[in-house]
């Protein structure tokens, strides 16, 4: 170990300039709530790294701590002090991540009093860009997001799919290299969802941002990702990482290809095992409740 370590160290030092650090890196990240004996561990010992420009999907049973993990990456929740989050190789102290990552929560959370256009420019306004400039910038994205002609509409006048696209546009206009998407298509019907997935890939291939995408849906995870990470039941940790070598650009036919099926079979077994654990855990809790 020692001699090897020295050698590797020398190599690393020499090639340091050429090696690109992972865009996002989580090292031993934990999140515990409450204190003993009522402590809940939401996230335990998460290590992950995402390369620049990579599209990573994260899948796991409901209640496994995915959203807690996302909130920590977005800077909304500090990780416990025994772990750390690095952005482009730089460790991020508590609160430092706010304003550095484009975060799109599960719900569209559009502001009902703002028009579609002014919802899209929200982050730009926070950054201090003048309203006129922000609007001009957003307007150029409307055709690409399929929202042409809806600039002056209010959110309540839009369908679910359109609202989600507005929320995505708002996230894209907050020009950060890392985008966090928390089940953005979870509430959409199957057809709209499939359309949005292809559309998202299209946008991603053109804008080349790094994406971390949470989902419940195995098909979605494989179809979109360069890498699929499986989270365990609570306390959530990364159980398995599957590299998806399916060629890009991907279209709808990929889903029925033998390679896709093979990957899906492997992942399904893994995810279902975790779902069963969640189920067993909740049944145990219910049993305990009825017994006492």
């Amino acid at each position: 170990m020692s001699s090897e370590g020295i050698q590797n160290g020398g190599m690393a030092a020499r090639s340091k300039a050429s090696v690109i650090p992972p865009h996002l890196q989580l090292v031993n990240v934990w999140k515990r709530f409450g204190s003993e004996p009522n402590r809940t561990v939401a996230v335990s010992n998460v290590d992950l790294s995402i390369a620049p420009g990579e599209f990573v999907t994260l899948i796991g049973p409901s209640g496994c701590g995915k959203s807690t993990l996302f909130n920590m990456i977005a800077g909304l929740l500090p990780p416990d002090s025994d772990g750390s989050i690095l952005l482009s190789g730089q460790p991020q102290p508590d609160g430092a991540l706010l304003g550095k990552i484009a975060f799109m929560p599960q719900k569209d959370l559009l502001f009902p009093w703002r028009t579609v256009l002014d919802n899209a420019t929200l982050a730009l306004e926070v950054e201090g860009m003048s309203r006129r400039k922000a609007r001009a910038k957003a307007e150029s994205l409307f055709p690409e997001f399929g929202l042409m002609g809806f600039e002056r509409h209010y959110p309540h006048e839009l369908s679910g799919g359109m609202r989600q696209r507005v929320a995505l546009m708002r996230t894209f206009l907050f020009e950060r290299d890392l985008i966090l998407l928390d089940e953005p298509f979870g509430a959409l019907d199957a057809l709209t969802r499939a359309m949005m997935q292809r559309w998202l890939l299209d946008i991603w291939e053109r804008h080349k941002r790094t994406v971390l995408f949470i989902t419940h849906d195995i098909d979605e995870a494989i179809f979109l990702g360069d890498k699929v990470m499986v989270m365990t039941a609570r306390p959530g940790t990364i159980k398995q990482t599957e590299t998806i070598a399916l060629p890009r650009p991907r279209d709808a036919s990929v889903i029925t290809s033998p390679d896709f099926m093979e990957i899906k079979r492997r992942l399904l077994a893994s995810v279902e095992e975790e779902s069963m654990k969640t189920f067993a855990l909740s049944r145990d809790a219910a049993d305990r409740k009825t017994m006492s």
């Binding site: 909130n71 977005a74 800077g75 909304l76 706010l98 304003g99 550095k100 990552i101 975060f103 929560p105 719900k107 959370l109 502001f111 009093w113 929200l122 982050a123 306004e125 926070v126 950054e127 907050f174």
Partner: peptide, 29 residues
């Protein structure tokens, strides 16, 4: 004020004053 919207604004790096003007006040109006 909807906590999800407040978190979203914080993730954009909004100051308290910005959150008040852009979110809290219109949402309470």
């Amino acid at each position: 004020v909807n906590p999800g919207r407040a978190a979203l604004l914080s993730s954009f790096g909004a100051s308290n004053w910005q959150s008040f003007l852009m979110l809290a006040l219109p949402s309470a109006a």
